[in-house]
Amino acid sequence: MSKTNQVIDAILERRSIRKFTAEPVSRDDLSIILEAGRWAPSGLNNQPYRFLVLYDDDARVDPLAECTKYGHIVKEAKALICIFLDREATYNEMKDHQGAGACIQNMMLAAHSLGLGSVWLGEIINQQDQVLEVLDVSSDRYELQVVIALGHPDGQGSSKRNELSEYMLEDF
């Protein structure tokens, strides 16, 4: 595809990055990424997502790494964004999860546009209770959606996709 549309190009070029350099992620870049997440669509515009940012020197990083089989990525990341749904702001489980997915995608595209690498660590939700305890976040109020690991890429990611026709229920 030609370089004519920055949004489409970002979608097609973004890859999951699991290795990062030692260079820190700036607070300004994190603010831009969080703003991109904040502007994701949500059902009834309820905006039920909440964020917790950890830098690599936060004492909670090592215990958080113990909550996932991808702990090595958690430890190597220069910043982590933990995304939750606020049960007090939700109204429809499916729509709120869809909104969280849009929020996550916005953040990862924003990170890519800033030259940062990111990866969606979803397996960690299998240990939600342990994660919430490590982060000292209320399990009554918040539901963990994902942890995004961020940093300056140390290498390129790769991916492939099936042909579009394999996804289509009918020709268009």
Rank of each mutant, 00 (worst) to 15 (best):
M1Y: 11
M1I: 09
S2M: 14
T4P: 07
N5G: 14
Q6Y: 06
Q6E: 12
V7Y: 10
V7A: 15
D9L: 15
R14F: 13
R14C: 14
F20P: 15
E23S: 11
E23D: 15
P24M: 10
V25H: 12
R27G: 06
L30S: 11
S31R: 13
E35G: 13
A36V: 05
G37N: 08
W39L: 12
S42R: 08
N46R: 12
P48R: 11
F51H: 02
V53Q: 00
D56L: 00
D56S: 00
D57V: 03
R60M: 02
A65I: 00
C67Q: 02
C67A: 12
C67Y: 04
K69D: 09
Y70I: 05
G71Y: 00
K75M: 09
A77E: 10
K78A: 03
A79Q: 03
A79F: 10
C82P: 11
E88P: 15
T90L: 03
T90P: 14
N92C: 05
E93M: 01
K95W: 09
H97A: 07
G101F: 01
A102E: 06
A102H: 07
G117H: 03
V119N: 12
E123Y: 11
I125W: 00
D129Y: 07
V131A: 15
S138M: 03
Y142S: 02
Q145F: 12
I148L: 00
Q156V: 05
K160R: 05
R161M: 01
L164E: 14
E166A: 15
E166W: 06
L169A: 07
E170N: 15
